[in-house]
Every structure is written in structure tokens, then in C-alpha cells.
Amino acid sequence: MNGTGINPILCVVTSHPIRGDPGEPTGFAMMELTHPLGVFEAAGIPVKIASIRGGHPPFNFFDLSAPVNDRYWQDKRFHDERVLGDLDLSRYSAVFFAGGHGTMWDFADSPAVQKVIREIWEAGGIVSAVCYGPATLVNATLSDGSYL
């Protein structure tokens, strides 16, 4: 918990930069992270951002004309994503998987993503996703081997 007494929401974005055989750039959809971040923070809910590889993940649908996008783009914390597999998941009350085409390549088969889903769900937390983010749930299994 933080000073507000609320456990943060873990926001997860893809680390995958290339889309399919044509080799087109991809990543996560900026607006599918920034708009929910704005809602969470306006409600006083703290957030942390992570990706499979950490660092600065690839963006897709980059648009700074939207004020919420520009606000987060200017915030240094937005550019310091943590490595998903390194996190203490007991600190989070929910996980939110942002969309974008890159999720189709690295979410469904990632052991770190599967662990996040399993641990947060089994602790009574919320597992959520938007647009292509539900690709995360394709192989999501619980500790007993059943699918989420």
C-alpha cells in the first residue's frame, strides 16, 4: 500500500517492437494506457507500469495532440517501466493489460505475464485488459491447471 491506503494497479504493456513478416513497427497503443492511467490517478488509485523486458517499450498509435498523452509523455515516470518478472506481485490489487498489436506476440506465452494473472487473480484481485490486451488471457491458467 502507499500513503493513500490503496494498493496500486499494475499496468502492463508489450515489449514487442515488430509486427509479423512484413516487419512493420508495432508496440502498445499509447492511448490505451494513458487514458486509463488518467482515470485511475483521478480516482486516487496509484499505478505502476511494467513490461516484459522493462525499459522504454515500443509505442504504437503515438499521438501527442491528446492532452492526456502529452501529459504522460512529459512525465519521466512514464518512461521508466519495470521488468514484469522482477515485481513483488503481492503489492498490487489489480492488473491492467494495455492493448496494441505487439501484445499478440509476447503476452499469451510469457511466463511472467501468466504468473501475474495467476497470482493477482488467486489473491482476489482484478485482471483486466483492453483492445488487443485480452490476448493475455489466451493461455491464462490458475494454480490448479484450470483456465481463468
Score class of each variant (00 low, 15 high):
Leu142Gly: 11
Phe97Asp: 03
Ser65Gly: 13
Arg82Thr: 07
Ala42Ser: 15
Gly102Ser: 10
Val113Thr: 11
Asn7Thr: 05
Asp63Ile: 06
Asp80His: 13
Phe107Pro: 03
Lys115Met: 12
Val13Gln: 01
Ser90Lys: 14
Leu137Arg: 07
Ile117Arg: 01
Phe28Asn: 02
Tyr92His: 08
Glu24His: 11
His79Gln: 08
Ala140Ser: 12
Asp80Ile: 01
Ser15Cys: 02
Ile49Val: 14
Phe62Met: 08
Asp80Met: 10
Val95His: 01
Val83Trp: 00
Phe59Glu: 04
Ala94Glu: 06
Gly38Asn: 12
Arg82Ser: 09
Ser65Asn: 14
Gly85Tyr: 02
Phe59Leu: 15
Tyr147Trp: 14
Arg118Asn: 05
Val127Lys: 01
Val130Thr: 15
Pro57Asp: 06
Ile49Arg: 01
Arg19Leu: 14
Gly5Arg: 01
Gly125Ser: 09
Leu89Thr: 11
Thr4Gly: 04
Phe40Gly: 05
Ile9Val: 15
Glu24Ile: 11
Leu148Asn: 11
Arg71Cys: 04
Gly55Asp: 02
Phe107Ile: 06
His35Pro: 00
Gly27Ala: 04
Arg53Gly: 00
Phe96Leu: 13
Val138Lys: 13
Tyr132Ser: 12
Pro36Gly: 03
Phe40Cys: 11
Val39His: 08
Gly54Ser: 11
Phe97Pro: 05
Thr14Phe: 04
Arg71Phe: 14
Asp88Gly: 12
Ala140Ile: 07
Leu137Ser: 09
Val127Arg: 03
Asp21Tyr: 07
Thr26Leu: 05
Phe97Ser: 05
Arg19Tyr: 14
Ala108Gly: 09
Pro134Gly: 12
Asp80Glu: 15
Glu81Gln: 11
Ser128Ile: 10
Phe61Ile: 08
Arg71Gly: 05
Pro67Asp: 14
Val130Asp: 07
Glu81Leu: 10
Leu89Gly: 09
His35Ser: 04
His79Gly: 06
Leu142Arg: 15
Val113Cys: 09
Phe28Ala: 01
Pro46Trp: 05
Val130Tyr: 04
Leu137Gly: 08
Gly38Arg: 10
Leu64Asp: 13
Pro25Gly: 07
Pro17Gly: 07
Tyr132Arg: 08
Asp21Gly: 07
Asp109Glu: 15
Arg19Ser: 09
Val95Tyr: 00
Asn7Ile: 00
Ser146Glu: 14
Gly20Glu: 12
Glu24Ser: 09
Gly145Phe: 13
Ala98Glu: 00
Gly85Leu: 03
Ala94Lys: 04
Thr136Phe: 00
Ala135Arg: 02
Gly100Asn: 02
Gly125Gln: 07
Val83Pro: 01
Ser93Cys: 14
Ser93Pro: 05
Gly124Asp: 10
Arg19Ala: 13
Val39Arg: 13
Ser128Lys: 07
Ala43Gln: 13
Gly20Pro: 09
Ser15Asn: 00
Leu89Ser: 09
Phe97Thr: 05
Pro67Phe: 09
Met104Phe: 03
Cys131Phe: 09
Thr14Trp: 02
Gly20Asn: 10
Ala123Leu: 05
His56Ile: 15
Val83Cys: 01
Leu37Thr: 01
Ala43Ile: 03
Gly3Arg: 04
Trp73Cys: 05
Ala129Tyr: 02
Ser90Tyr: 03
Tyr147Val: 14
Lys48Thr: 15
Asn69Trp: 05
Ile18Met: 11
Val113Ala: 08
Gly3Pro: 00
Asp21Thr: 13
Glu122Cys: 10
Leu64Gly: 06
Gly5Val: 03
